[in-house]
Design a protein around this nucleic acid. Structure first.
Length: 561
RNA sequence: GCGCCUGUAGCUCAGGGGAUAGAGCGCCGGCCUCCGGAGCCGGGUGCACAGGUUCGAUUCCUGUCAGGCGCACCA
């Protein structure tokens, strides 16, 4: 399903192709191959509704000046074209198409009829994509970087879903390896301390207050029986308890943020099931492994990576990289057509070797797409906010949601592109005023809902779309709004192609602005019933677009504020 | 030293091989007998610098400068 804009663009493209053929047929142009021309919406209004650069791409082949070619193409344009008022040559050889402004009005009944399905497109064609995001270590709380990843990943997943992909949201739990060792030692030290014994948290352990709280709860639940237990048992018991609690807290924190996963994937399970070993063996069979200094190395340098990487340490324990290779191998074994990872920019060095490993295993490295997300700096009162007092970490997701609310937090993370370093202004996000872009958009939605409440109070309702005379909409503000609503399906497709949720954030903000401008100049409910009905259809279509767009961002569309 | 990301308006950021580069915030000035003023309207000497490719570069390429982040038998 494509929108009216796409339809019109295709019509014009075909018309241009036909005109070229006709001109060649008539001998006005020499035979030419149709180049890669575009029909696009010009920036400037005066340049029409659409423009094409076709004539500017032909001079070499046709041995004529671009403007001359454009003239010839215009002469050969098909006679009757719906909505076309005039086409003209402009600038260095553009052909500008000026349409009857009412051509976009078709989008309104379409939006109203399709409701939540308006803006769903078929670009993905049902192919399967996995989006893995956050995947924070289960040894602490979620911080601002994780929060950005959560907002971004969830929104990308939603957008891909709207674009016709079959989406799986996945969280990789790093519940194995060195950091779990350190975690265990930290827990043990806190356990001893809380029970009055001398102990020190290791240098590279976890120093947050939340770990102390966890151990305190463990003692409340289980007492001090581990003091005298055998060490392995003590460590295992503490880790098992703490991992469960931390993972639970992470799940809850994300759920409160509106993020829900399809799969929680345990790293430990890869070790337990022998998948890590299997991945290493497969690399060995394919000749990409060698031994040096007692360790097993992956020949990453065969795949354009600077250095080779250790897979199995001298002590026989596989590295994180080995497990990650096994994990990604597993992703492809599960049959995903496209695998998307969202990583913090500090992991960018990991990208080439991961892709190299996939290539070494015989998978298409292009099917693995890593989105590198730049870091977040929190600002309040014009100052950088450093640490959370409670946890010793950067401000946690939970604190953020308490502070600014879920909608503002999500919108703020989404409104910047992933590769922009994000300065998060807490004061602005917190302000319930016209400064705050998220309220601006939500207000537009609430305002429309209010119109319909008014309507209901008068005992009126919106008639079926086919009984509404859309041609009554001819004010500039009405047509500008309708024009932008018609763009929505393409905006979704574009956001999906570019994996760029911030496009949707800006789009809904713009639609909200157009709605407010319209609302301020024209009344929707008036004594003129026919005109009222047309305008009601317009604002209902706007409501649909705002709600759907905000939905892709994980932001609520409230009926009242 | 090598690699990745980023340099666009006072600030935070979009955009992008084309015809007059945008938004929000801040600042100034206007708009409510009327559907929600959390709104609207008006006010703008800005693409880090230098080369190159192109009919055309702010966009692509190279270099320089600046900021961030990486370069472990950590993850």
């Amino acid at each position: 399903m494509t929108g009216v804009v796409d339809k019109m663009r295709n019509n014009l493209r075909q018309a241009m192709a036909a005109a070229t053929a006709a001109a060649v047929e008539a001998g006005q142009l020499p035979p030419v191959d149709l180049p890669e021309y575009v029909v696009e919406v010009p920036r400037e209004r005066e340049h029409g509704d659409f423009a094409t650069n076709l004539a500017m791409l032909l001079p070499r082949q046709a041995r004529m000046a671009p403007r001359k070619i454009a003239e010839i193409l215009l002469e050969n344009l098909p006679r009757s074209m719906q909505w076309l008022e005039r086409a003209e040559v402009a600038g260095p050889g553009f052909i500008n198409f000026h349409l009857d402004p009412r051509w976009v009005l078709e989008a309104l009944p379409e939006a109203v009829a399709r409701q939540s399905a308006y803006g769903r497109v078929e670009a993905g064609k049902g192919r399967r994509v996995q989006v893995e995001f956050v995947s924070a270590n289960p040894t602490g709380l979620l911080h601002m970087g994780n929060a950005r990843g959560a907002a971004l990943g969830d929104s990308i997943a939603s957008i891909l879903d709207a674009a016709g992909w079959q989406v799986t949201r996945e969280y990789y739990i790093n519940d194995a390896g060195n950091q779990i060792e350190n975690f265990a030692l930290t827990l043990e030290a806190r356990y001893f301390q809380l029970l009055g014994r001398e102990a020190e948290v290791p240098e590279n352990g976890y120093h947050g207050q939340d770990i102390v709280d966890t151990v305190r709860r463990f003692i409340e639940d289980n007492g001090d029986g581990l003091l005298e237990a055998d060490r392995a048992k003590r460590l295992n018991t503490l880790v098992e308890y703490a991992l469960k609690e931390k993972t639970g807290a992470i799940k809850k924190g994300l759920a409160d943020f509106g993020v829900h996963y399809d799969v929680w994937f345990s790293e430990q399970s890869l070790h337990d099931s022998g998948k890590v070993e299997e991945a290493v063996n497969r690399l060995r069979e394919r000749g990409h492994i060698y031994e040096k200094d007692g360790a097993l190395w992956f020949k990453a340098s065969s795949f354009g990576v600077e250095k080779d990487e250790v897979l199995v340490r001298k002590n026989g324990i596989p590295t994180y990289f080995a497990a990650d290779i096994a994990y990604h191998m597993n992703k492809f074994e599960r049959g995903f057509d496209w695998v998307i990872n969202i990583w913090g920019a500090d992991h960018h060095g990991h990208v080439p070797r991961m892709k190299g490993a996939m290539e070494a295993l015989g998978y298409n490295p292009e099917a693995l797409h890593v989105i590198l997300m730049q870091l977040v700096r929190l600002f309040s009162g014009g100052e950088i906010v450093r640490m959370s007092k409670r946890t010793g970490q950067f401000v946690t997701l939970e604190e953020l949601v308490d502070e600014v609310g879920r909608d503002a937090a999500r919108y703020f993370f989404i409104m910047r592109s992933a590769d922009s370093h994000l300065d998060f202004d807490l004061d602005l996000a917190r302000s319930q005023s016209n400064d705050n872009p998220v309220y601006y958009v939500q207000y537009a939605h609430a305002r429309i809902c209010s119109i319909f409440r008014q309507l209901a109070e008068q005992g009126r309702s919106i008639p079926p779309a086919d009984r509404v005379d859309l041609r009554l909409l001819k004010e500039e503000a009405e047509l500008a709004l309708a024009r932008r609503l018609a763009d929505y399906p393409e905006e979704v497709a574009m956001a999906a192609r570019q994996l760029a949720p911030h496009r949707i954030a800006r789009y809904v903000h713009e639609v909200a602005g157009l709605l407010h401008s319209f609302y301020n100049v024209h009344r929707v409910i008036t004594g003129d019933v026919e005109l009222s009905n047309a305008r009601l259809l317009l604002v209902e279509a706007t409501r649909v677009v705002l709600r759907n767009g905000l939905g892709l961002l994980g932001v609520n569309a409230p009926e009242k504020m």
